[in-house]
Write a protein that binds this DNA or RNA. Structure first.
Length: 820
RNA sequence: GCCGAAGUGGCGGAACUGGCAGACGCGCUCGACUCAAAAUCGAGUUGGGUCACCCCCAGUGCGGGUUCAACUCCCGCCUUCGGCACCA
């Protein structure tokens, strides 16, 4: 009768039943409170790894818990299916990306089903599906119409291995985010999205994201990199302006030179026909030859050369020399920087190297700096000196005054700069959504008319060449008619960065089969924003920034009524083994399929949740998984051995203890999930309840056990375990005679009045050291408790005849007798 | 260099608002059951003081401090990890 716990059989059975019943299908809008739980969708690489298991299990617990708490839950799954690996495989093995992608998706979908994740599979989507990427293209056209997509010739990041350009966010330490090849620079004409137009809002709205980890918010803040300052106009002999940008206008009087970026067009103007011409030109050539990575490293030696020309300081009228130097960036500020050696570390090093004057104008409190003898720049605030009418002013206060004066005198203007750059989205690759633009031989670039979308990928292309998209060789794809003059036109052959595909997919889930629009307005406004988003920290400034940008654009276009897509964000840690990320090269990869086969999905899920809180890295352990399996087996035996006992209706102290423990467990698991997402401690609490139940059984012969209390506690246990171990819970629920699915049960509620015992154990300390324990009725008054404690032999012993100076009492918890 | 997080038994981790440090689990040791093994069950498991017992001392990266009481708060360091890094 009490068959063995055999997870494989049991799990397969229930997965089929759930699918048949459509148990996890999303309810219609308007019925009950909505809850949108989303985990970042995967790239269909071919096989799920432990990181996926962890990710999607965490999401599943959140989704299941909310369902049981009465929410109408949207918990969808899809595939970020465009991308390089499929195309690389095509080149290597001549499998078409469409085919390998379909195969991979089928395989991984089956894996996720085996994990028992409660997805609404009816809403599945894949970004490579024409029904999806049609709307990705539509989104591009929307951006284009709103002036947010433009074509520009610029020096761009090029990955030689991927043979394509990359966005700034996709270059990590000068290397490609995907293949880690060193990125080089190329001058190309490409499509960009004007994310910089949204810099201020992307920054300001970070403060709305209280449900995001501080870490991610700070990373985005740094990435956007706002600087508030002043653009001040220095002038050349002929009156030509040379504006500089500074955030330290309080140091303007300390300027002893200005520096121009080597790429700056002004350089040529300055040196033409002058003695320094040849030398400066040689210097510029050398600087340009240095790699971007090298140039932009703080460690690179600062080098420069004097142009032989001077500029006039707008406030002092002084002549200052103009230099060219490798540390000045062309694409930030004005490409010209003022040099204040006394108050900037870089300028100081530069000035000392080339013998430029150092002129301190901000003095530390009670000190007087000397430009000749200073050993380092003084970069802190202080008192202004040698600064004309600003002398004696606090340098922080001077910032605003100088800015105002500069504006009033028309010598410059306040200015805000951001480090954020526009988003380069062209990719010279096949396996992506084609950019829906075409170029007419006569009248230039045009968007593809919306009714001609999608611009479909041509299937029959040759995957051989590197450096150009296979689409560029396809006559069938290239040929188009100009929508304006009906002349011959050529399609854009670049595809879009796949991060565009993923910058709006969370909207599509609201109405994934919609034919007429990317999403239905009512549905998208009902379901969004996502209540809980879960994913890796690696997307802190990639996907998470892009998605915020696109959401704001759609808001401005009146298509959605929210400005932020993700209310709460959980960044889960990696699954590691031996402290290192699992990877084939390290040989420490553990296959989820194998583990599920060995221990069952429930045990794997349970271990992965139990081993570590979700934000931390998790050390995989086969023995740990086995431990989880053992626990489930213990639950299995406990329930089956306890069914149908004759029972005894008496409720004595043992029954009261069991009931209290059960209520305490409900409370602990509920708050651990709801408030802290600490599933590890939630599971620990469930284990303690199981231990308590075994203790109750072992201490009472079967005939003495109270069947109804026991049954109630067991049912509660099974329901509490449902989000973590959905298959086992379902089976046991039915074996206990439960009606309907355990996953449709209302989450147990605890009775606060039953949480406390009638008696409590109070810790007794003498001078802060534990000396004894005392069991007293709960809520005992201070004086009475003090009397009891002082009467304890151990207390007397440690008092050693001395008198207590003070007695500290924490009711129901602790008494500390203080002697000094 | 700047910013952020973390440092607790052999291991993963717990201690939520300052109140019994080490919950829960893994591993290990011993025992029961067994012809034996596996499984299961029970006991123990921070270090030390001659660990039979009681008892005592020390102990949450290091050094100080506040407090009746500190893993928790404050000051100063060390280490590890992550992010940014010539942004004027």
């Amino acid at each position: 009768m009490n068959a063995k716990y055999q997870p494989e059989q049991l799990e397969t059975k229930w997965q089929a039943v759930w699918a048949d019943q459509g148990l996890y299908r999303t309810g219609g809008p308007g019925e009950r409170n909505k809850y949108y739980c989303l985990v970042m969708f995967p790239y269909p690489s071919g096989v799920a790894h432990m990181g996926h298991v962890r990710n999607y299990t965490i999401g599943d617990v959140v989704a299941r818990w909310h369902r049981m708490n009465g929410y109408n839950v949207l918990h969808p799954m899809g595939w970020d299916a465009f991308g390089m690996p499929a195309e690389n495989a095509a080149i290597k093995d001549q499998v078409h990306p469409a085919d390998s992608t379909r195969r991979n998706i089928d395989f991984m979908r089956a894996q996720f089903k085996r994990m028992g994740i409660s997805y609404d599979w009816d809403r599945e989507l894949a970004t490579n599906h024409p029904g999806y990427y049609r709307w990705t293209q539509w989104l591009f056209l929307l951006l284009y119409k709103r002036g947010l997509a433009y074509r520009k010739r610029a020096a761009v990041n090029w990955c030689p291995d991927c043979a394509t350009v990359l966005a700034n966010e996709q270059v990590i330490d000068g290397r490609c985010w995907r293949c880690e090849t060193a990125v080089t620079e190329r001058e190309l004409e490409q499509w960009f999205l004007k994310i910089t137009d949204y810099a201020e809002r992307l920054l300001a709205d970070l403060s709305l994201l209280e449900g995001w980890p501080e870490r991610v918010r700070v990373m985005q803040e740094h990435w956007i990199g706002k600087s508030v300052g002043v653009e001040v106009e220095f002038t050349l002999a002929g009156g030509r302006p040379a504006p500089v940008f500074t955030t330290r206008q309080d140091t303007l009087f300390g300027v002893t030179y200005i520096v121009v970026a080597p790429e700056h067009p002004l350089v040529e103007e300055l040196i033409a026909g002058r003695p320094a011409e040849a030398a400066v030109r040689a210097f510029v050539q050398r600087a340009k030859a240095q790699s971007d990575l090298f140039r932009s490293s703080a460690e690179t030696e600062k080098e420069g050369i004097y142009t032989g020309v001077d500029a006039v300081h707008p406030l002092t009228g002084e002549q200052v020399p103009i230099w060219v130097a490798n540390y000045v960036l062309m694409d930030y500020g004005t490409g010209i920087v003022m040099g204040v050696p006394a108050h900037d570390t870089r300028d100081f090093a530069f000035a000392r190297k080339y013998g430029l004057r150092v002129r301190p104008v901000i003095m530390p409190p009670g000190e007087r700096l000397n430009g000749e003898t200073m050993a380092a720049a003084y970069t802190e605030p202080g008192v202004m000196a040698d600064s004309g009418r600003y002398d004696g002013l606090d340098s922080v206060q001077a910032l605003d005054r100088i800015a105002a004066d500069v504006e009033a005198a028309r010598l410059g203007r306040r200015k805000v700069h951001y480090r954020l750059r526009d988003w380069l989205i062209s990719r010279q690759r096949y396996w992506g959504a084609p950019i829906p633009m075409l170029q007419c031989e006569r009248c230039g670039w045009h968007p593809v008319p919306e009714d001609q979308l999608p611009v479909k990928l041509v299937r029959d292309v040759a995957f051989t060449a590197k450096g150009a998209s296979p689409l560029a060789q396809s006559g069938e794809f290239l040929a188009a008619e100009c929508p304006s003059c009906r002349g011959k036109a050529r399609r854009e052959t670049d595809t879009m960065d796949t991060f565009i595909d993923s910058s709006w997919y969370f909207l599509r889930y609201a109405s994934p089969r919609r034919q007429e629009a990317p999403f239905a307005r009512a549905e998208v406004n009902h379901w969004l924003p996502v209540d809980q988003y879960i994913g890796g920290i690696e997307h802190a400034v990639l996907h998470l920034l892009y998605s915020r940008f696109i959401t704001k654009v759609l808001y401005d276009a009146g298509m959605v009524n929210f400005t932020e897509p993700f209310t709460r964000l959980l960044t889960q840690g990696m699954v590691v083994m031996g402290g290192a990320k699992m990877s084939k090269s390290k040989g420490n990869v553990v296959s989820p399929d194998e583990m599920i086969k060995r221990y069952g999905a429930d045990a794997v899920r349970l271990f992965i949740l139990f081993a570590s809180p979700p934000e931390r890295d998790l050390e995989w352990s086969n023995q740990g998984a086995e431990g989880a399996f053992r626990f489930l087996q213990r639950v299995w035996r406990l329930v089956l051995e306890s069914r149908g006992l004759p029972g005894n209706p008496t409720v004595g102290p043992q029954e009261e203890d069991l009931m209290r423990l059960t209520h305490q467990t409900i409370k602990r698991i509920t708050t651990d999930i709801r408030e802290r997402m600490n599933f590890n401690t939630a599971i620990a609490a469930a284990m303690e309840l199981v231990n308590g139940l075994y203790a109750y059984k072992d201490q009472n012969p079967a005939a003495r056990q109270n069947a109804s209390v026991l049954d109630w506690s067991l049912r509660t246990l099974v329901v509490l375990l449902a989000p973590f171990a959905p298959h086992l819970s379902e089976e046991l629920w039915h074996r206990l005679g439960g009606e309907g699915s355990v996953h449709l049960q209302r989450w147990p509620q605890y009775d606060a009045t039953l949480l406390k015992a009638a008696e409590v154990t109070v810790v007794v300390q003498v001078d802060g050291r534990v000396r004894d324990k005392l069991t007293v009725p709960a809520g005992m008054e201070g004086p009475r408790l003090e009397e009891l404690v002082l009467g304890l032999p151990k207390v007397a012993q440690h008092l050693d005849g001395g008198r207590p100076v003070r007695v500290v009492i924490v009711p129901d918890k602790l008494v500390n007798v203080v002697t000094r």
